[in-house]
């Protein structure tokens, strides 16, 4: 579904991504782990071109999104993204947050968009918050809304950048539960996280990034039980 070859990203002189190759298949839950500054966010943000790669190619559903002639707005509708800081639109109600993109981009009618939004809100247990503003919600609620907002576009893949890192510990579970359900429903996901329990439980593959490279990858049981790269060992020793 997403094929990345030779992905390279420099910020000025800083070489942040250094030749990333990966092929993400439909239905996979790829969990990206690694030390801070290793390029995990940059990698994820390259996948929907929030960062422009300085080299390499990204092909999404058969279309090269890194090609100059590509109109990225079309593919982004099929790639949901969830941010560490939620980034809900504070001047809109929860319902407006969720329905804006479907209505404006996919020309879904207001009734239809509202129905989809309320169904999704129901699924994350927040149907009663439709009329609330983001400022009135807890962090965990905001993040679940942010997930719903992305899902309302019915994307083919969901990208998560440390979705629980800005949350108070007691709210991490409710967000992870939503993500687990999503994975169980067969959503293709790429998740940058420090939640090793989540990686172990729902990840189909784990990438360990270090210094702008994928230092090691494999199925979770293997990586966690039996890391081969000494850097992976060191990192897991710290976080587990």
């Amino acid at each position: 579904m997403i094929k990345v070859t030779g992905l390279d990203k420099k910020f000025g002189k800083l070489h942040v991504l250094n030749g990333i190759d990966i092929d993400i298949k439909k239905g996979e839950v790829v969990v990206v782990i690694g030390p801070s500054g290793s390029g995990k966010s940059t990698f994820l943000r390259c996948l929907n071109l929030l960062e422009h790669p300085t080299g390499g190619e990204i092909v999404f559903e058969g279309v090269s999104i890194t090609s100059k002639h590509n109109d990225i707005n079309k593919q982004r509708q099929k790639m949901g993204m969830v941010f560490q800081q939620f980034n809900l639109f504070p001047h809109m109600t929860v319902l407006q947050n969720i329905t804006l993109a479907p209505r404006k981009l996919k020309k879904v009618s207001e009734e239809e968009a509202n129905k989809i939004a309320l169904d999704l809100l129901e699924r994350v247990g927040l149907a009663d918050k439709a009329k609330s503003y983001p400022g009135q919600l807890s962090g965990g609620q905001k993040q679940r809304i942010a997930i719903v907002r992305a899902l309302a576009m019915s994307p083919d893949v969901m990208l998560f950048d440390e979705p629980t890192s800005a949350l108070d510990p007691e709210m991490v579970g409710e967000v992870l539960d939503v993500m687990k359900k999503l994975a169980a429903d067969g959503m293709t996901m790429v998740v940058v996280t420090h939640e090793m329990g989540f990686a172990r439980e729902v990840g189909t593959r784990v990438l360990f990034m270090d210094g702008g490279k994928i230092a090691e990858e494999g199925i979770p049981s293997e990586i966690f039980a039996n890391p081969k790269n000494p850097r992976t060992k060191e990192f897991l020793g710290k976080v587990l």
Partner: peptide, 17 residues
């Protein structure tokens, strides 16, 4: 916050929208 623009763009909105 620049996250607002990023969130909007990540949904597929154009810069103008």
């Amino acid at each position: 916050d620049k996250g607002q623009m990023e969130a909007a763009r990540s949904l597929g909105m154009s810069h103008y929208m």
